[in-house]
Amino acid sequence: MTTIAPAVSGRRRTKSLGSLEMGRPGFAWAIPATLFFGLFAIVPLILVAVLSFTRWDGLSSPELVGFENWSALLDDPIMIKSLWLSLLLTVLGVVIQTPLSVLLGVWAAGHQRNRAILSAIYFIPLLLSATAVSVLWRALLDPNFGIPAQASWLFGNGNLFGKQATAIGVLAFVSTWQFTPFHTLIYQGAARAIPRVLYQAAEIDGASTVRQFWSITLPQLRNSMITSMILMVVGGLTTFDTVLILTQGGPGTDTMISAYYMYEKGFRNFEFGAASAIALVLVVVATLVSLVVVRASGYDKMRSTLEGM
């Protein structure tokens, strides 16, 4: 058992040495990916930027209107509200899903009886499409014929989609239900990679299971945690289908997140110029948030958790 740790770190070292010796691969290797990325990400992004300075209903040709869409957006209370709601849902997602998936992941990394079966069952929600999941929960949460009708001690009158707090709660819950398995998977893999020797040493020192979790498992999971959180942030800011099916931004505009507001402006109201402006705001905000997370978490100087072993 004790030989595992050096073997792992040894492998890592040779790998990094190897890449240093070879130097960076030539630019030619990047051409397919660059073309793909340019065609499907950069070009549309530039087109959206141009569209945001026009008025266009999809019928006639776009008409340049200068900063009209942008100034309208700045004065639009729904836009500001939608950004806060997007951030709120993202933060809720991270705050709820991270502890859950860490605990589940660490549990699933163990070797208990029935663990494999339970993990497999628990993994199912991830395989369903977000749309199917939303339709399913919409039916399950029907106030007259769903769960709330049977459990009024928990749900009150069951008017979950009629109040802002409960509507946001439903959205956060449904994405938690669907995406926790994914992050569990990340933590499961990471927890499995923690060298046994650390726990053995801790056991000799008399550390309890709880103490081992806080002092060994969690610090060792740090890098995975950052990866998972960035995925959650990007996923949270681009959430769309759950809102489309569960609340349509309602009641009123109480769950009108930016991505849905963009869809509504573009494909319901046919104001593609205004919709493009919202899209750009979303791109900028998401980029900023990602940068902040990367900086704050030290992801950019991510160090091996096996240092000194």
């Binding site: 549309p44 769309f240 991505a259 899209a279």
Partner: peptide, 9 residues
């Protein structure tokens, strides 16, 4: 992040 957004758009 940009790619994800671009794709969703």
């Amino acid at each position: 992040a940009v790619l994800a957004l671009g794709l969703s758009l």
